[in-house]
Every structure is written in C-alpha cells, then in structure tokens.
C-alpha cells in the first residue's frame, strides 16, 4: 500500500519555498524567518510551527485589507515544514531577489515577513463603482507564493505601442512600475441587456509583465451589469 503512495512523498528541501505538485507549496520554516500566510491556508506541517492569527503589527495595515472576500493574514513562526494550499488553486512561487511585484489581494497566498509590503489602492480606479481594487505591493529579498485558478499566463506589456487591457477579475499580479488606468467599454446598450459582458478593463502601459489567470473570480467587483 505504501508503494503506490510513496511517490507523493515530499522532496528534500532545497529552497525556502517549493512546489509540491501544482497546487501545494512547501515552506521550510526556521526561527527568525517568519512567514505571513492567508488565514486558513495551512494544510499540514511538520516540526514546531506556531500561528498567530493577527499579530498587532500586521493589524494596523490589515485594517485596510479590503479584498472583497476578506483575506486576513496569519503569522507563522517556528522550525519545520509548512504546507500551504488554497482550495486546489495552482500555486506560483517567486523568489523576489530585490524585484517588486503588485499582487491582487485575493491571489496572495504567503510571503516572507522580512519583505517590505503594503496595501495600496490602484490609482485611476477609485472612481469606479463602490469598491476600488486593492492590491499588495511586495518587494525585497525573499519569497512570495501566489495562487491562480488554473495555469496562469504571463504577458509582456512593453511589446509594441499598444496597451494591454485586463479583465480585473482575472488579474493576478503585475510589475509595479507599469502605469495603470481604468477603461470602461460601457455603452448605453448595456442597460437594455445588450452589453458585451466586458464593462471594465484595466489598462497597463510601460515596461513590465502582467500575470493573468484563466478564470474570473465570480465576485461582482467592478462590474455593474453583465
């Protein structure tokens, strides 16, 4: 019985964060190098790992954490192996190494506590209905794990003179140096049931990348009528 399952044993640790399959991330925890992860994303751990649901230092910033779904963070500390997953979503692991990345709040699974991070509001989208789009900007030396509903695609933005437009529901992450603006392809026809289903897009211009997932979150953020 053990033989069929032996292939799923974890690989030896080679890095701070590693994929185990497509949908799980394995984090090598050590004292003094804490991890911030989404609440409830832990599926297993080995060793001595402790979880603080809402550390005071995080709470001040987490007050602004408006992701629509409410995704507060927990702080994980200790020694051992920590396995994180998010309802079977694909997990993408990035070693930042000095780069920076803006991540949609719902798509952030975990990141090193030593990174600089902050919640920011996407400029130019504030005038849109109700909630704006909030995102987390992380930068520094460390690791980040993102989730994606399905295999993501990475598109270069700086190709040609044309801008890149993204459905906000499918957006995962982008380079922070890109210029973001909102675009509404909204016509009067939408009000009488003749809309194209694409009311708002976010336009990106400049040099950088945009990461998109092949699925649109069903929350009705940024969409008035489909």
């Amino acid at each position: 019985m053990n033989q069929q399952l032996a292939g799923y044993a974890p690989a030896p640790v080679a890095a701070r964060m590693e994929n185990h399959g497509h949908h799980m991330v394995k984090v090598a925890m050590q004292t003094g190098n804490d991890l911030l992860a989404r609440v409830g994303s832990m599926v297993a751990y080995e060793g001595f790992v402790q979880y603080e649901p809402n550390p005071p230092a995080v709470r001040q910033i987490a007050r602004d954490w408006i992701t629509g779904e409410g995704a507060p963070l927990m702080k994980c500390s200790g020694d051992g192996l920590l396995y994180l997953a998010d309802y079977g979503a694909d997990v993408v692991i990035i070693n930042l190494a000095g780069d920076s990345l803006s991540v949609n709040g719902t798509n952030l699974l975990a990141f090193d506590a030593s990174l600089q991070w902050g919640v920011e509001r996407v400029k130019g989208l504030a005038k849109f209905a109700g909630q704006g789009l909030w995102n987390i900007k992380v930068s520094g030396q460390g690791w980040v794990a993102l989730t994606s509903r399905g295999t993501p695609i990475v598109v270069d933005c700086g190709r040609g003179e044309d801008e890149t437009y993204v459905d906000p529901d499918a957006l995962i992450a982008w380079s922070p140096n890109l210029k973001v603006k909102g675009k509404r392809s909204f016509r009067a026809g939408s009000l009488i049931g003749r809309g194209s289903g694409e009311a708002y897009q976010m336009g990106f211009s400049g040099e950088g990348i945009v990461v998109v997932q092949p699925s649109e979150d069903s929350t009705d953020r940024l969409r008035i009528r489909s």
């Binding site: 692991i93 070693n95 930042l96 780069d99 295999t151 380079s175 990348i209």
Partner: peptide, 20 residues
Amino acid sequence: AAQAAPQGAGVAAALQKYRE
C-alpha cells in the same frame, strides 16, 4: 512538467515557464 524547477532569482525567472 511543472515540477518546481530550481529557479533563478527574480520575478522574471520565476515566471518564465508561464510565458506567453
């Protein structure tokens, strides 16, 4: 094929396999 390849550092290297 998507086993975690030992990746170079940086965002671009980590996302290389998801390129368009």
